[in-house]
C-alpha cells in the first residue's frame, strides 16, 4: 500500500512530483498533432488533386510522393527532415551571407513537417477515394448551370468530399497521435520524452511508461468521442434508414 502511495505521490504537481512535467509534455504532444493536421490535410488534398485531375507529370509526381512517404519508416523521414533540413539551411545561408550565424532547426517544426508529409501521403489516398463518391453527373450538372471549375470545386465537390473523407481522416488522426511520440527521439519534450526524463530521475520505468501509455489511450478515447460528435454533425442532413 505504501508503495502505491509513494508512486502516486510521484505524479504530484509542483517541484516534488512529475505531474506538471508530464502534463506539459502531453500538451506538446497534442499541440504537435493539432499543428500537423491542417498542414497534412492541405498538402494531402493538393496531392489528391494532382493524382485525380492533374496532367501526366502531376499524376506521376503524386504517385511517387505517395509511394515514398508511405514506404519510408516515419522515424527515418523525421531524421531526414531534421538533420537534412539543418544541412540545407546551412548551405543556403553560406550562399547568402559571409559569416553565417548557425540557425537551429526547431524540433517542433521538423516534427510537424515530417509527420505532415507522412500524413499527407496517406490522406491523399483517402481524398482520392472520396472523389470517387461524387458522381460525374453532378459535375456535369454544375457545369451546365454555368459554374466555373473553381466554383464547382467549392460549392459542389468540397461540401460532399469532406464528409466522405471523414472516417478515413479520423483513422489517420488516431495514427498521427501515436506517431507524435517519435519526436521524442529528436529531444522535443513531448509526453514520451518528459516521461523518459522522469524515469531517469525516479528510476521507476514501469510505472511511468505505463502512465504515459494510459495518457495516450485517454487521448485516443477523447479523440474518438470528438470524432463521433463531428461525424454525427456532418451527417445531420443525411436520412437514415428507419429514422
Amino acid at each position: 500500500m505504501d508503495r502505491i502511495e509513494s508512486l502516486i505521490q510521484l505524479l504530484a504537481w509542483g517541484p516534488n512530483g512529475w505531474g506538471d512535467e508530464i502534463a506539459a509534455g502531453t500538451a506538446i504532444t497534442v499541440a504537435l498533432g493539432i499543428a500537423t493536421l491542417p498542414f497534412g490535410l492541405l498538402l494531402g488534398f493538393l496531392i489528391a488533386l494532382a493524382k485525380h485531375s492533374g496532367g501526366r507529370t502531376a499524376r506521376m509526381f503524386g504517385n511517387l510522393y505517395t509511394t515514398v512517404f508511405r514506404g519510408l519508416p516515419e522515424l527515418l523521414t523525421l531524421l531526414i527532415i531534421y538533420y537534412g533540413g539543418q544541412r540545407l539551411i546551412q548551405e543556403v545561408q553560406a550562399l547568402l551571407v559571409e559569416d553565417p550565424e548557425p540557425i537551429e532547426v526547431n524540433a517542433f517544426v521538423a516534427g510537424m513537417v515530417a509527420l505532415g508529409m507522412v500524413f499527407s501521403a496517406y490522406s491523399s489516398e483517402v481524398f482520392l477515394g472520396a472523389f470517387k463518391g461524387i458522381t460525374i453527373g453532378q459535375i456535369e450538372a454544375s457545369r451546365a448551370l454555368g459554374l466555373s471549375r473553381l466554383l464547382t470545386l467549392r460549392l459542389v465537390v468540397l461540401p460532399q468530399l469532406w464528409r466522405f473523407a471523414l472516417p478515413g481522416i479520423a483513422n489517420l488522426w488516431l495514427i498521427l497521435l501515436k506517431e507524435t511520440s517519435l519526436v521524442s527521439v529528436i529531444a522535443l519534450p513531448d509526453l514520451l520524452r518528459s516521461t523518459f526524463i522522469a524515469v531517469g530521475v525516479t528510476k521507476e520505468p514501469f510505472f511511468f511508461f505505463l502512465v504515459a501509455c494510459l495518457i495516450y489511450l485517454v487521448l485516443a478515447m477523447i479523440s474518438s468521442i470528438g470524432i463521433g460528435w463531428i461525424e454525427r454533425w456532418a451527417n445531420r442532413g443525411e436520412r437514415r434508414a428507419g429514422a
Binding site: K178, S181, L182, S184, P205, Y216
Partner: peptide, 23 residues
C-alpha cells in the same frame, strides 16, 4: 487489443525494455 493498438509502439518498447530492468 485496445491497449496495443491505442498506444505508440515506441512507448510499448520503452515499457518492456526499461520496465523489465526494474524487475
Amino acid at each position: 487489443v485496445y491497449f496495443f493498438r491505442g498506444t505508440p509502439l515506441l512507448a510499448q518498447t520503452f515499457l518492456v525494455y526499461y520496465g523489465a530492468g526494474e524487475f
